[in-house]
Amino acid sequence: MNRPVPPFRDVLTLLGQLNYTWTNTESLLIHLIAGLAGVDKETATIVFLTLNTTRARVDLVERLAKMARTPSPVRRDVLEVTRKMMAEAKLRNKYNHCIYSFDDTGDNVSTLLMRVSESGDSLRYGKMDAIDADEIANITRSISRLAQTNREIWALARRHGFPL
């Protein structure tokens, strides 16, 4: 079935929702840092803001969870939510590190990936992907999964008594 693709402004709105949902969920790592490191929320916030990439923040949370002193149920819960979060990172990163192409009517939206790929003695760059109805559905599902992960992090923090 051919589903219509929304105009570019609607795609941008959806991507804004993806980015907001991601950023809001990533900020909850502050509570995990506080609980796992045994510090207050203000200290955890400073640590979070000092680490300037998602990967560094998640690495810290996962390493704290893997410490011998972390109870198994806490470790399992934390590693599960960070795994779910990072499963969405590829899509989020794709749309945050590309430029967009569309025709003069705002239709036929595509991404142009701004990354160089080296293979042997050649370079490739500027991979184009259409944002079609299937991709819109993929983005929408990712937003839903991130929102669910957000709720799981809140529940985990409450269940294990982490600073809120």
Results as ranks from 00 to 15, higher is better:
residue 56 A to N: 08
residue 139 I to N: 06
residue 57 R to V: 00
residue 55 R to I: 10
residue 59 D to L: 11
residue 97 H to D: 06
residue 14 L to T: 07
residue 78 V to K: 04
residue 11 V to C: 09
residue 46 I to E: 14
residue 138 N to L: 15
residue 131 I to P: 02
residue 67 M to V: 04
residue 108 N to K: 09
residue 24 N to F: 14
residue 160 H to S: 09
residue 17 Q to P: 04
residue 16 G to H: 02
residue 74 V to N: 02
residue 15 L to W: 04
residue 85 M to L: 15
residue 70 T to D: 05
residue 42 E to P: 00
residue 75 R to A: 08
residue 154 W to Y: 14
residue 157 A to F: 02
residue 55 R to F: 07
residue 58 V to I: 15
residue 8 F to H: 10
residue 127 K to S: 11
residue 27 S to F: 13
residue 96 N to V: 05
residue 26 E to D: 11
residue 42 E to K: 12
residue 66 K to G: 15
residue 145 R to D: 10
residue 132 D to L: 01
residue 53 T to R: 00
residue 123 L to Y: 13
residue 35 G to C: 08
residue 67 M to L: 15
residue 107 D to P: 03
residue 138 N to Q: 13
residue 155 A to D: 13
residue 10 D to G: 00
residue 113 L to D: 12
residue 145 R to G: 01
residue 23 T to M: 14
residue 142 S to T: 15
residue 67 M to Y: 07
residue 61 V to W: 00
residue 145 R to F: 06
residue 150 N to E: 11
residue 21 T to V: 15
residue 89 A to H: 14
residue 149 T to Y: 05
residue 35 G to N: 03
residue 27 S to K: 09
residue 105 T to G: 03
residue 161 G to I: 08
residue 100 Y to E: 01
residue 44 A to T: 06
residue 154 W to S: 06
residue 136 I to T: 03
residue 62 E to Y: 00
residue 16 G to S: 12
residue 160 H to I: 03
residue 28 L to S: 00
residue 96 N to K: 03
residue 103 D to C: 07
residue 58 V to C: 06
residue 116 V to G: 02
residue 25 T to I: 07
residue 56 A to R: 12
residue 118 E to W: 05
residue 87 A to D: 11
residue 109 V to F: 03
residue 84 K to W: 08
residue 78 V to C: 01
residue 89 A to E: 09
residue 117 S to E: 15
residue 63 R to L: 13
residue 78 V to M: 02
residue 125 Y to Q: 11
residue 147 A to G: 10
residue 159 R to F: 00
residue 130 A to N: 10
residue 132 D to I: 01
residue 157 A to W: 03
residue 46 I to F: 10
residue 104 D to S: 13
residue 146 L to Y: 00
residue 77 D to P: 03
residue 129 D to L: 04
residue 128 M to I: 11
residue 162 F to W: 06
residue 125 Y to T: 14
residue 118 E to Q: 10
residue 84 K to V: 04
residue 50 T to I: 00
residue 12 L to C: 11
residue 101 S to F: 01
residue 128 M to R: 15
residue 9 R to D: 13
residue 83 R to N: 13
residue 3 R to N: 10
residue 35 G to K: 05
residue 34 A to K: 03
residue 89 A to W: 08
residue 117 S to T: 13
residue 116 V to D: 10
residue 21 T to K: 04
